[in-house]
Simulated scan of single mutants.
Amino acid sequence: MEDKNLGTEWDAEIAEEQADRRRKAEPAPRLSRKEFTQWRSPRTGEDNPTRVDNPLWSWLVRTRWSAYQANEILRGPSPLDAGPMWSFDRFGKSETTLPDGRCVHIGGEHEDYYDPDFFIYNEVTTIDGDGEIAIHGYPVSVFPPTDFHTATLLDDAIIVIGNLGYPERRVLGLTPVFRVATDTLSIHRVDTVGESPGWIHKHSAVLADDASAIVVRGGTLWRGDGLSMIDNIDSWSLDLGTCRWTRLTALDWQRWTMLRVDRKMNRLRDVRQELWHRAHAWPGAESHWKFDDAPDFDALTALYRLDEESPMPREGPEYNIFHTVIDGLAVRFTEDRFHVQAVVEGRLREDRLQALQRTLLTTLERLDASRWEIEGL
């Protein structure tokens, strides 16, 4: 029997691809070299807010070309020399629809940190029901570069909570909160008190039923330079009247981070890709395995299992997150290029916890042909 949800997702994906092709069919604006140079690069505003829309950026908002693609179309200079090009094709950007039909887009980042077009934006862009675009910039002192935040609509404002941001702008223990006025689009920092989640991003935020507070759940917490980020496992409430944070839960869960002793990038993704390649690649397709020793697929089969009787972990809908059950407790493992995080939803008996950790480290060392350790131990 056909999976209706899968069919719906497939239809939505096809519709988005068609819409994207229509967007990108719009020809580039006719700009002089001076005009292109003037507006090619990102910028901040001087006032709160500053209108900074222009034909180039408006075209990029409508088409969503990446910085690289737009720069190629317009024959611009290399970002290695000229710096990143402005783009509206962003990750971690919030979109909030207002009662008057405007859609408010806040912040977001383009590309990853190692790309020459990488940039985190501090703009607010509105698109009304007729497609009219207004782009607003702000001084960094008023609204810093913001991405992977939440945007919660109130009667006359949008409350922006959290941020990943540039490493040098993060503040340990602080949860950034801003208020965006929906009429003027001016932004003001909200000073809060109480026990906050800390520097959080990729979380969810829901307005309480009585609209008196915003409840924050999930997401990832930055713990300071040199330490890996961890999942936020608790719930938090921000009272909108008093601006006081309250911690709603304090889950007593076991969690730890495993990583290479030399802190270099691991090769878990490479092993998984090579396994897929051998099972699914067409004849003659080139393997991207770049290591001298062969991939240890037996170790991959044993990964995240305490022993041979343990169930095989299953990969959830989230990318690179694996779930299993040990001694009746749900356990999940999140793989990253530099570490693996483990979360036990409860507390394993101490001897079982130590056995699991020893087994994990041994298996990871087999897969990676390098020494691993538990961070902080």
Rank of each mutant, 00 (worst) to 15 (best):
1 M>E: 01
10 W>H: 11
15 A>I: 03
16 E>A: 13
17 E>D: 12
17 E>I: 10
20 D>W: 06
20 D>A: 13
22 R>W: 04
27 P>M: 06
27 P>A: 09
30 R>N: 15
47 D>S: 14
47 D>I: 03
50 T>Y: 02
51 R>D: 07
51 R>P: 11
52 V>D: 03
53 D>C: 00
54 N>F: 07
55 P>Y: 06
56 L>P: 06
61 V>F: 05
63 T>C: 07
64 R>A: 13
66 S>K: 12
67 A>E: 01
68 Y>M: 10
71 N>D: 13
77 P>R: 08
78 S>C: 06
80 L>E: 11
80 L>H: 13
87 S>A: 13
89 D>H: 15
94 S>W: 05
100 D>Q: 05
101 G>R: 12
102 R>F: 00
119 F>T: 01
121 Y>S: 03
124 V>L: 09
124 V>K: 00
129 G>C: 06
130 D>I: 04
130 D>V: 02
132 E>P: 05
133 I>F: 08
134 A>H: 05
134 A>C: 05
135 I>D: 04
140 V>E: 15
141 S>N: 06
158 I>M: 09
161 I>F: 13
162 G>P: 14
163 N>R: 11
166 Y>F: 14
166 Y>W: 10
174 L>A: 15
176 P>R: 02
182 T>N: 02
186 S>E: 15
188 H>E: 15
192 T>D: 11
201 H>M: 11
202 K>V: 07
203 H>L: 08
203 H>Y: 09
203 H>K: 04
210 D>T: 09
214 I>V: 12
214 I>R: 11
218 G>Q: 13
219 G>N: 01
222 W>N: 06
225 D>Q: 11
228 S>T: 02
229 M>F: 01
231 D>F: 15
234 D>F: 07
235 S>V: 04
236 W>N: 10
237 S>V: 00
240 L>A: 05
240 L>T: 01
245 W>S: 12
245 W>A: 09
249 T>P: 02
254 Q>S: 11
256 W>L: 09
257 T>S: 14
260 R>P: 12
261 V>C: 14
263 R>A: 01
265 M>E: 15
269 R>S: 13
271 V>I: 12
276 W>R: 14
277 H>E: 02
279 A>D: 10
281 A>F: 00
291 F>C: 00
293 D>R: 14
298 D>C: 04
299 A>S: 01
301 T>W: 08
303 L>V: 00
303 L>F: 04
304 Y>P: 00
304 Y>A: 10
304 Y>I: 06
308 E>L: 15
311 P>K: 07
315 E>Q: 15
320 N>G: 01
324 T>F: 12
331 V>R: 09
335 E>I: 08
338 F>S: 13
339 H>C: 10
342 A>E: 08
347 R>S: 14
349 R>V: 11
352 R>T: 14
356 L>V: 02
361 L>P: 02
366 R>F: 03
368 D>K: 03
375 E>V: 03
376 G>W: 14
